[in-house]
Design a binder for these strands. Structure first.
Lengths: 217, 217
DNA sequence: ATGAAATCGATAACAATATATCGATTACTA
DNA sequence: TAGTAATCGATATATTGTTATCGATTTCAT
């Protein structure tokens, strides 16, 4: 197996979730001062296990690290960005321009990871035709046609729970292959569609629960 | 071990994340029609493993299920709500009333899990003094004093990445014990503070990556 | 009653992930 | 140039979470 075609599928979801933090930390280093960074240093800074960091980096770095010095910062940034899709931009559409939808449309963070929300859709006539975060808002009726023509394959659902299933079906009809779902309901979609649920209330509940656990002991 | 003082700490984060979906599904059932629901039924509806559901429910249900019939719906709802903190409301403050902060302040979902954002803080004079989602926005200077007096112990950070660390320190000084952090940076806080990171860009990146993996195979 | 079907709880096997250990390699220092 | 310390990669162990299996229990139909 050549370096170029690493077996990316070997990277776990958890690793994937940590990579952005590595990138973030490494970028924050003064590159005039250091040219390389080691796994133990990153681990300490992010409160992670040294071996875990090393394994994660091994999965994405094309050159590996050197004993005693670590990984070349410049190379590592390149590798991480490449891996996170910096070079092949993935486009997404968003449905539901409420508070949360607007927040996502205005969110700058996506660009850094090779992701871009290109257009939005909503039922509400008041927002249709306007621009939010620089993206135009279209009526739901245009969804199918526009998605097909743009070849977009990621859909973001930020509509109320009761409309989510219906919207997901629209998206599937429009050829969407992956859905990022913010509605707190389980979506029924064909097997080939990847769904990632983002239940904000549940997330906060988890935090609150963890806190209570800790206080109890 | 009595029923009342179950060993809640045995519940994993993953389980905790699934509980709201169970609750949601069970509530959606017509209680005039059914009085009990079984693990296999829930599993099928939510596309999960039957045994997993049973184990999860066993961890929160006070009475257990009956062979052949399953779990009593009414009891189960009570247990789940109890477990998720329905009865002892946890209060939180939010810092950073931008798009995302506003979205969270207006988000109705929290109430169902015994969570409540009580006030918000921001640097920007334009939003200070206004109400968002029915909650008043105060200047940052008031944070420490107000949090102390209200005895709030959860803080939500929705400020730009560069301000997050500073805000986290403010929150810690204000006696906050748990932080829900939306800024894509690792926060350095005392060990006793629980931090939960919510990196939206990373989440979408994970989805996008998953999709690409799937398409490759 | 009795037998069949569904479900439970418990335990066991499996899978994924995280952490620890260890020899090999490199850089620095005396 | 030899010794020491830091780091790497690889391998082994431990931990955690998921899935399968199995005997026991309950309901329902005969």
């Amino acid at each position: 197996m050549k370096n170029q075609d690493k077996d990316f599928s070997a990277v776990s979801i958890q690793t994937l979730g940590r990579l952005p933090y590595y990138l973030n930390f490494i970028k924050s280093l003064d590159q005039d001062k250091y040219t390389s960074v080691s796994a133990p240093v990153i681990a300490k800074a992010l409160n992670l296990n040294e071996v875990q960091v090393r394994k994660d980096l091994a999965a994405v770095s094309s050159n590996g690290g050197k004993p005693k010095t670590g990984f070349d910062i410049e190379e590592l940034i390149k590798d991480l960005e490449e891996f996170l899709g910096y070079n092949n931009v993935d486009e997404a559409v968003l449905v539901g321009v409420g508070h949360l939808g607007s927040a996502l449309l205005s969110y700058k963070g996506f660009e850094n990871y090779g992701l871009k929300i290109v257009v939005a859709f909503d039922q509400n006539e008041a927002v249709v035709g306007t621009h939010v975060g620089g993206k135009q808002v279209f009526p739901l009726e245009k969804l199918k046609d526009l998605c097909w023509r743009m070849g977009v394959n990621i859909g973001i659902i930020t509509v109320p729970a009761e409309d989510a299933q219906e919207v997901s079906e629209l998206l599937v009809e429009a050829g969407i292959l992956a859905i990022w779902n913010f509605a707190p309901v389980h979506l029924h979609v064909p097997d080939y569609v990847v769904v990632q649920n983002e239940n904000l209330a549940a997330s906060l509940a988890v935090l609150s629960k963890n806190l209570n656990e800790k206080l109890k002991v």
